[in-house]
Write a protein that binds this DNA or RNA. Structure first.
Lengths: 250, 250
DNA sequence: ACAAATTTGTTCGTATGTATG
DNA sequence: ACATACATACGAACAAATTTG
């Protein structure tokens, strides 16, 4: 006989990682709590601290643990956060969508600046490269927890005072509807996924290399002119984009 | 004097990782080529092999390098693979979509079995839990390169001979249209992102922890009965889901 | 078909640096 | 200032997979 164990014994660090996952999922270590220190755990598992650290690093990269230098290692709070169902259709309204699901929406303004459009953005906005645009970056929260980071671009030629207006009317949907009196429709949405950037990781409260859903949207007015181009990065673990015909006919 | 550099010097492994990225992106190490061995590189950078390995591990986790035990470390072939634009609408046709973009589609059958529906799948398919269903898992390739892994579920009550039929008619769209004579429409698509599972990583040829786009689809016939439930995992780096009104009205 | 060399993978040990309370 | 806890780095040895002779 060739061998008894087709599944060759796994490396120590993998078995320890599995044990850690199990303890977290079984509630031996509870959400938010500190797990024993590396010294204690390596002693307990009877391995070198490096081996233990490797296991922790793996589990942390999966998002179940959070490691803070000088403080300790903590069970990530992956509480029963039901995913937000986010319909993508002709009208996409963050605040309405969330409120319909009993979730309290909030925006935090991160940046609001003007700049010349680079080639890529100009193409998407159907303007000349170098034309001045407004860029607004906001953190979208659901029940106080980070859900998305949205970068939006607007043509200044059409909305010269948009940055000032945004202070009074923080909702972009309402800004278009009530101030500029133009309808705001989604022409196209491109969806892909990426590993989170370091900056977004900080804003979204996720660890490095977790996936984000990236939605690139072009919004137009009634005459099909581009009035907003936006790139939104959603926490993948909290978001489910919903695509169905009804979204687009109504 | 305490120090000259307020911006504390980054750790060695990070600086080496940066250097490796730079060399890859600048073409010093070309796509598919083997990079020097760990022994050579650690010597060259003047660091311990562990430190060098950590840098390589980081860059590999970003998808720029592939490490094969016993063979060597290679620059990942992230050639100018233009993302496949994959429209999500009322009709979703893998083969047609790709051919329209000048890309040659192909399917490889991975599994085709029958099994009782668990609660989750039964709910999605609007059948009783435990009812027998067919499960078909296929690898979708674009110009010979892995693009997606699709798991599809069909009610056996409606299509008792579907597994046999699939051998003759490998295209599911065509199978419904030509054999079963029923129209095949997308009712809903839910899109999210996840870190790739170990098995999908192997099938898709990506490294562990890279993101995949997950599209969960419910397809119905003309009477709005569910005839297929599917979960498809797309390589995120090769896929751009496209959502626009035209997809759904026509 | 086998043995040796090559290359990456795992584990231990030791030392020192950095952040926190 | 001090102790605690995680972070980085070096060194040594052996295991596992692959390629080469």
């Amino acid at each position: 006989m060739e061998d008894m164990e087709l599944q060759t014994e796994a490396p120590l660090y993998l078995r320890i990682a599995q044990e850690l996952r199990h303890n977290i999922l079984e509630g031996v270590y509870k959400a938010g709590e500190q797990v024993p220190t590396e010294a204690v755990l390596s002693e307990r598992f009877g391995v070198n601290r490096h081996t233990l650290r490797r296991a922790i690093g793996l589990v942390a990269s999966e998002g179940l643990l959070r490691v803070d230098q000088g403080r300790g290692t903590f069970v990530a709070d992956i509480s029963p956060t039901v995913a937000v169902r986010y319909p993508i259709g002709e009208r996409v309204r963050f605040s309405e969508t969330l409120r319909e699901q009993g979730i309290e929406p909030r925006y935090e303004l991160l940046r609001a600046i003007t700049l010349p459009a680079n080639a890529r953005i100009a193409e998407k906005m159907e303007i000349r490269s170098g034309e001045h645009i407004a860029m607004v970056e906001r953190l979208g929260l659901a029940d106080g927890r980070p859900l998305k980071v949205a970068s939006s671009y607007f043509p200044l030629s059409r909305f010269p005072d948009i940055l000032a207006r945004l202070n009074e009317t923080p909702s972009i949907s309402r800004l278009f509807a009530e101030v500029y009196r133009c309808d705001h429709r989604r022409r196209t949405t491109l969806v892909t996924a990426q590993a989170v950037s370091p900056e977004d990781a900080r804003l979204l409260g996720v660890s490095y290399n977790m996936p984000v859903l990236v939605a690139e949207a072009v919004n137009t007015d009634e005459e099909n002119r581009v009035i907003e181009y936006g790139v939104t990065r959603f926490r993948a673990d909290r978001t489910e984009l919903v695509i169905q015909p009804e979204n687009l006919s109504g």
